[in-house]
Amino acid sequence: MGERKATVAAEVGLHARPAATFVQTAMKAPMDIRVAKVTGGEPVNGKSILQIMALDVRQGETIVITAEGEGAEEVLDQLASIASTP
C-alpha cells in the first residue's frame, strides 16, 4: 500500500478550493483513496468533499494519504502536491 505525508500549506487549510481540487483529482483515480491526520483518527474517503471538510485539517497540519493498486504512486504524488500547495 502506498502512502504519502503532506503538510497542508493553504491558509484556509484543507477546505474550500484546496479541498475541491484535492477531491476532484482523487475522483479521477480508479482506486480507493484514504486520508487521515498524522496525529491519528479514522481515515476518511478522499473522494468525499464532505468527509475531507469534516476532517478539519488546518494550515500546518500533516495528513497521511494512502492508496493501493496500479498507478497509486502517481496519484499519491499528485494529491500530496495539491495538499502542500499554498
Binding site: 474550500a16 478550493r17 479541498a19 475541491a20 477531491v23 476532484q24 474517503n45 473522494k47 468525499s48 468533499i49 464532505l50 468527509q51
Partner: peptide, 10 residues
Amino acid sequence: AQALMAEDPG
C-alpha cells in the same frame, strides 16, 4: 465545491 458536495459519495 458545492456541486462536489451534492454528489459526495458518502
